[in-house]
Design a protein around this nucleic acid. Structure first.
Lengths: 197, 197
DNA sequence: GCCTGACTGGCACTGAGTGTCAAGCAGGCA
DNA sequence: TGCCTGCTTGACACTCAGTGCCAGTCAGGC
C-alpha cells in the first residue's frame, strides 16, 4: 500500500508543483489580483474545476506552505529545553522557518507581493494565527501554567508578540529590498518590545 | 451648506443604522455566512445595488468603518504627551476604542461571530494592520527616531505587539463568555510580554 | 418651468467557489 | 483477456460577492 500511495502521492505532488510554478510566474508577471484562476488553469493545462481540487483558494498557492511550516515551528519549539526562557525559545523556534528560505530573489518577490496584496496579507496573518494556536500549549507549559489553564492570556500574548516582531522585521526587510539580515531585524524588534518603558 | 449637508448626512446616517440593525439581526439569527446580501437588502427594503453604496462588503457591516476607527486610535495616541512611555501611551490609545463598546451582550455575540467566521477574522486583521500603519509614525517619534527613519523595526514591533496583546485578551474574553475585564486581561498580557525572560 | 446634482433601482457582467454527473484511466482479479 | 472497482478529471450549472453602466426620480436653485 505504501508504494501505491507513493505513486499517487508523487503525481499529485508533481501536479502541485506544476500549478505553483505556472501560477507564480503569472503572479509576478501580471500581479496577484490581476491573475484569474481561469488563466492559471488554462496555462497549467487543467480545467478550472480541477484547480480547485488542488488549491482551495488562489491565496493557497502562495501561502500553502505556511500551514505545514506551522508544524515545523511547533516541533522546533518543543525541541528547546523547558529551562530556556520564553523569548529565547521562540527565537529558536521561529529561526527554524527562516532557515529554509530559498533563493533570496524569489523570496523577496513573493514577500513583496504578500505585503502589497491585502487579501494575501490577511491570509498570511491567519496562517500566523494558526502557528500561534500550535505554539501556545508549549508556551503555557514553559510559563509554568497548568495545561488546561486557559484563563491566562500570557502564553498567547507572548507567542503573538513574537510573531508580530517577525512580521515587522519581515516587512522592513522586504521594503528595504532584501538588504540586511532578517534575524538581526527580528532581534532588534524583540529587544525594543522587551526594553521599552 | 452645512444645513443641506446635515440633511443628507442625517438620512444617510439613518439608512446606515437601519441596514446595520437589520443585518445584525439576520447574522445573529442565521449566521454570518448563511446570510446573503440579497436577504439583507430585501429585508431592509432597498435594492442589492443600493446596499453596496452604503457598505463596500458584507464584513463592513460588522466591523464598521475601518478608517474612522483607525483615525480615532491615532488621535488618541497623539493626544498622549510624548513624555509618556510607549507601552503606557499605547494602552491609553487602545483604550479609546474599547470605550465605545455598546451593551456587553451584543458585543460578546459580535465578538464570538468574529472569531468564528474566517472572512470576518481576516477583515479584522486588516483593520488592525491599518491601525498599525497609522500609529507607527507617532511611535517612531516617541522612541526618539527621525520621522523619515524607516530602518528600525522598533516602532512597528511595539505597535504590533500591543495590538497582538489586545487580540489575545479579546479572544480570551470572548471564549470565557464575557467574564472578566478586557482591560485587565490586556494589562496582564502586556505584563507577560514585558517581563518574560 | 427648467436645470443640475445626488440617490436609486435594474441589468448585465466578471470572478470565486461548490455540487453533480458522466467519462476515462489506472490496478486487481477471475 | 475481459470485467470490476476506485479514483481522477472535465464539463456544466449554479450561488454569491462585487462592479460598471444607464435610466428614472426627486430634491433644491435659478
Amino acid at each position: 500500500m505504501s508504494t501505491e500511495s507513493s505513486l499517487w502521492q508523487r503525481s499529485r505532488q508533481a501536479a502541485y508543483a506544476e500549478i505553483t510554478v505556472v501560477a507564480m510566474r503569472l503572479f509576478l508577471e501580471h500581479g496577484f489580483e490581476q491573475t484569474t484562476i481561469d488563466q492559471i488553469a488554462s496555462t497549467a493545462g487543467i480545467s478550472r474545476r480541477s484547480f480547485f481540487r488542488y488549491f482551495g483558494t488562489k491565496e493557497d498557492i502562495v501561502l500553502g506552505d505556511l500551514a505545514s511550516q506551522g508544524v515545523l515551528v511547533r516541533d522546533a519549539l518543543e525541541a528547546v529545553p523547558l529551562s530556556v526562557g520564553p523569548w529565547e525559545a521562540l527565537r529558536e523556534a521561529l529561526g527554524a522557518v527562516d532557515a529554509l528560505e530559498g533563493e533570496p530573489g524569489a523570496t523577496l518577490a513573493i514577500a513583496r507581493m504578500m505585503y502589497e496584496t491585502p487579501s494575501l496579507r490577511a491570509r498570511s496573518i491567519e496562517k500566523h494565527l494558526h502557528w500561534q494556536a500550535l505554539l501556545v500549549p508549549n508556551m503555557r507549559m514553559r510559563l509554568g501554567l497548568a495545561p488546561d489553564d486557559v484563563t491566562d492570556p500570557a502564553p498567547a500574548a507572548l507567542v503573538a508578540s513574537a510573531i508580530a516582531c517577525l512580521d515587522a522585521a519581515g516587512e522592513l526587510w522586504t521594503r528595504s529590498g532584501g538588504a540586511g539580515d532578517l534575524a538581526a531585524l527580528y532581534d532588534r524588534a524583540v529587544a525594543s518590545v522587551r526594553t521599552a518603558s
